[in-house]
């Protein structure tokens, strides 16, 4: 069964995820004896060899990494024109690189943001900026370490699609989209803070 939520429904994923291949052994970075769990914003985490070695599926809808588009654009232009290209980026990648790589990001029917770890809240600012600053109007998907307890926040930051981690139930996760009925602050999904949304009268003394 599919683990992909679009809006408030579970749907089949029609996009074929393209990843950069792992060449050789991945090195584990350590700092002060501890494994480094997060990559720095702007850190380059792939090599030209990886991009060169990436196999682009010949047909169908593909969800390709931003770095692949930037380096091998010529091979992907026709797919973009056919509506068969979507782009994903990591939370440590710089959003400006995505925006400047397209004449209009709304040419993309889907942008997906990969969150490697639950605790990486950069994904929220990225979603917000895509929607508010860059006017992205099509499907915005979160994938990676996506668990139900992020969903309410992701939704409020402009995401409308969530690929729940494979070992968890997307069905259960749907409930978390409704965790709070009337949040305080304005955000992407509802720009009005509660005091502009409803009339709040002073409460009577308890």
């Amino acid at each position: 069964m599919s683990n992909l939520i679009l809006g408030t429904s579970i749907v089949e994923d029609e996009w074929n995820l393209v990843r950069l291949p792992v060449l050789g052994e991945e090195t584990v970075r350590k700092q002060a004896g501890k494994v480094v769990l997060f990559k720095l914003t702007g850190e380059k985490t792939y090599s030209e060899e990886q991009i060169a070695a990436t196999v682009i599926p010949a047909t169908g809808k593909i969800l390709a990494p931003l770095s692949l588009w930037i380096a091998r654009r010529g091979e992907l232009e026709s797919r973009l024109a056919a509506g068969e290209l979507a782009i994903w980026l990591d939370t440590h990648e710089v959003l400006a690189d995505l925006v400047s790589a397209f004449d209009d990001i709304n040419q993309l029917p889907l942008i997906a943001v990969h969150v490697e770890r639950f605790a990486d809240g950069r994904i929220f600012s990225i979603g917000n900026l895509l929607r508010t600053r860059h006017g992205y109007q099509n499907t915005l998907r979160a994938f990676g370490d996506v668990l139900r307890d992020q969903l309410f926040f992701l939704k409020r930051c402009g995401f409308d699609s969530y690929l729940i981690r494979a070992d968890r139930s997307a069905e259960d996760a749907l409930a978390s989209l409704k965790d709070f009925s009337q949040p305080y602050q304005g955000a992407v999904d509802d720009k009005q803070p509660v005091w502009r949304r409803v009339s709040r009268q002073p409460a009577s003394q308890p």
Partner: peptide, 8 residues
């Protein structure tokens, strides 16, 4: 309180 962008 539950500011969505600054939750993590």
């Amino acid at each position: 309180t539950f500011h969505p962008e600054f939750a993590l």
